[in-house]
Nucleic acid binder design. Structure first.
Lengths: 329, 329
DNA sequence: TTGAAAGCGCTACCAG
DNA sequence: CTGGTAGCGCTTTCAA
């Protein structure tokens, strides 16, 4: 690997001058510049980012912390983040935390050691970062927290929509699967659904789940249909859970959506491929990732940011686990 | 951020000594060490990886290049890589190339600029790296290439198995969906299937697809059933394609697996959630990622590696898009 | 318009 | 066993 010194030597100038043409700052005579550029090309030189980072005490790296890339909701998020960052010349340092605070801290720690310029996190811990300056610019993704910059979807409205659509389509005995309660957006969905359900005249009951694994959902689905066999509408905490419920319903011979309607949450790629394809509340995952990256970039560049919290809208994606409703039939 | 100098000052020794206790090399008196350790703790010091990298001319970063993390086959791969690397204290620099050579080169270039110690790539380009020394240790994942270190699954055998299982279960008119032909492992699957089909007495025909997108697969599936309505067994190039075929079959009222059997390839998480759940040839994605990471680590540490190519076995996962066969009924 | 030199934080060599 | 020092590759004063 050629260094700046080699370039300087070859073009017969000082490293300072080479640095100037590299960074396009400071005066440099056109002729000199030409010589330097030529040397750079001949040597196929490109600057060492590490040395640069050391001097500037910051890199062009951004840390991305996800619970688990294997969960189908996250790849889209990640892609949104990456595409945006990549456009602006930043690279991604990536880690899965499994929601484990120890792992989380370990990652943040090494990110810091590598002098990342910012952090995007879809996990809990990262909050403390904002406390003790010099704070690392951080944006929370799919998570909320008052003191932090956040990008998330309107879970509460999502919950409301789910409940409303179910009722509109004739469910009378609704079951709500309530996801892990320590995750705020999940709570929001639940609250939204509760709000609408509470103000309606349908029966409903709530089943609590502690994870988003398919296995647990399968288990809960079994309980659901045995304890509450007459339920005719199910609001799942996310699409994975909905898929498990759908499977179980099919297995025991329920017809979907005639006997039971099901609504998921997220709209992961899987959802349209299920049979019947899953009606769900869509979170704009890619867009969320992209917005988070944009926000972070502004923070890094110390540009004016107008909103500390960016809430993106959710939409109802009508597919085949809900009945058709004739508008003004 | 405290530096090694601060620690030296606080503990009343030289930076050289601090460095020695940090790296646990060279002699240092127990008392001195204690003082240093204490200072480190008090200052909450941790060494700057960037400075370290600069000096050593290598980091503890590994580049991971994937076509698209949004394709459900890759998250598992990535996770396998990450978990293994993480255990050994390496971090991941991550990029999606979309199979675009320009993007690919751009990523590799910045990886290099950041002095990664190795590269794991599930894309084409990375081959050239092995040409001109000093070569960056590289392992190709889910790709093959003679001159490189590779980890991949036995696609050919997978193709054979798929064909065999279909025939064993009574398909007489088989359709093979042949994926993008520039991807070697995909070719292998196809060749494997051809081999068995050619030696059998069933009719078969081949449809070529140029991508792995659901949209194209949908299109092809339509053609398939209209041009070749009597087909009773389909070997798809991967699970996404299989899902599209399955959907189309269901849509036009074919009964699965009675009228048509379908076998996919990969065994992505989606496959078991389809209805009917998808029979498929499983690639051990997580294991592949993990093995690739282990191999790379050996390369980096210049440990003896016994095999340049690691081929992992595939297995038939029998689910419900194939008929049951009574063994020795 | 250019160059010399200091220094980012760290490791490794050589003296002592 | 310990410290001084050079130097990794780069950027940025400061003088010339």
């Amino acid at each position: 690997m050629a260094t700046i010194k080699d370039v300087a030597q070859k073009s017969g100038v000082s490293v300072a001058t080479v640095s100037r043409v590299l960074n396009e700052k400071g005066y440099v005579h056109e002729e000199t510049r030409a010589k330097v550029v030529q040397a750079i090309q001949q040597l196929n030189y490109s600057p060492n980012e590490v040395a640069r980072s050391l001097f500037k005490r910051e890199s062009r790296l951004v840390g991305l912390l996800l619970p688990d890339i294997t969960n189908p909701f996250f790849p889209e998020l990640a892609r949104g983040v990456e595409d945006e960052l990549q456009k602006q010349g930043f690279r991604l340092l990536f880690g899965n935390s499994d929601e484990d605070p120890v792992k989380e801290q370990a990652y943040i720690h090494t990110f810091l050691q590598n002098q990342v310029v910012g952090l995007i996190s879809a996990t809990q811990a990262s909050k403390e970062l904002n406390d003790k300056p010099p704070a690392l610019p951080t944006v929370l993704l799919d998570r909320t927290h008052d003191g932090s910059y956040t990008v998330y979807a309107d879970g509460k409205e999502g919950g409301r929509i789910a409940a409303r659509e179910l009722i509109k389509r004739g469910s009378h005995k609704v079951t709500v699967l309530k996801g892990p309660s320590h995750i705020q957006p999940v709570q929001d969905r639940f609250q939204g659904a509760m709000e609408v359900l509470g103000n309606s005249n349908v029966d409903f009951h709530v089943i609590h789940t502690t994870s988003f694994t398919y296995e647990e959902a399968e288990q809960r689905a079994k309980e659901l249909f045995s304890c509450y066999a007459t339920t005719d509408g199910i609001i799942a905490s996310n699409d994975i859970t909905a898929a498990a419920v759908l499977h179980e319903a099919l297995r025991i011979g329920k017809s979907i959506p005639e006997e039971v309607q099901i609504i998921g949450f997220d709209d992961i790629p899987l959802s349209r491929l299920l049979f019947p394809s899953l009606s769900t509340i869509r979170q704009p995952a890619y867009e969320m990732g992209s917005q988070a990256a944009q926000l972070l970039l502004k923070l890094i560049k110390k540009e004016q940011v107008t909103a500390q919290h960016i809430q993106l809208p959710v939409t109802f994606v009508e597919r085949n686990t809900t009945r058709k409703v004739k508008e003004h039939g």
